[in-house]
Amino acid sequence: MPRTREQLEQAAAEATQWLDDLDPDDPSVTVEDTADLRAVGLALAAIAASESNLSATVAAARANGRSWARIAAVLGVSKQAAMRRFSEPSHPIPPQTSRESEPDATRSSTR
Rank of each mutant, 00 (worst) to 15 (best):
A59W: 00
T106E: 13
R85N: 02
D23R: 05
D21P: 04
W18R: 12
M1G: 10
S90G: 09
E6A: 15
A43S: 12
P94M: 11
S78A: 00
R38W: 10
S98E: 07
R84Q: 14
S101P: 05
S52D: 13
D104R: 12
P95L: 13
R107I: 10
A46Y: 10
A59H: 00
R85C: 04
V40L: 04
V29K: 05
Q96H: 14
T97Y: 08
A105P: 09
V40K: 00
A60P: 01
G65C: 01
Q17R: 12
T4Y: 06
V29E: 10
V29H: 14
G65I: 01
R70Q: 11
P95D: 11
V31I: 09
I93H: 13
A46N: 15
A61N: 06
P92A: 14
Q7Y: 08
A15D: 14
A48K: 02
A81M: 02
S28P: 01
P24E: 06
A46F: 10
P103A: 15
Q10F: 13
R5L: 03
I93T: 15
A61D: 11
M1A: 15
T106R: 10
A81K: 08
T4G: 06
N64H: 03
T57R: 12
R62M: 00
D36C: 05
P27T: 02
E32R: 12
P94K: 07
V58A: 02
R3T: 12
R70G: 10
E102S: 06
S67T: 11
R38A: 13
S78E: 00
D26H: 06
S28K: 08
A81G: 03
T106C: 09
I71C: 00
P2T: 07
V74C: 11
A59C: 02
L8Y: 14
S78K: 00
H91S: 09
N64F: 00
I47C: 14
R84H: 14
A15P: 02
S50P: 03
L37S: 11
T34H: 10
A48C: 04
R85V: 01
G76C: 04
R99A: 11
I47F: 14
A15T: 09
S98G: 04
F86V: 00
A13Y: 05
E6H: 05
A12T: 04
T110E: 13
R38M: 10
R70K: 11
A49I: 07
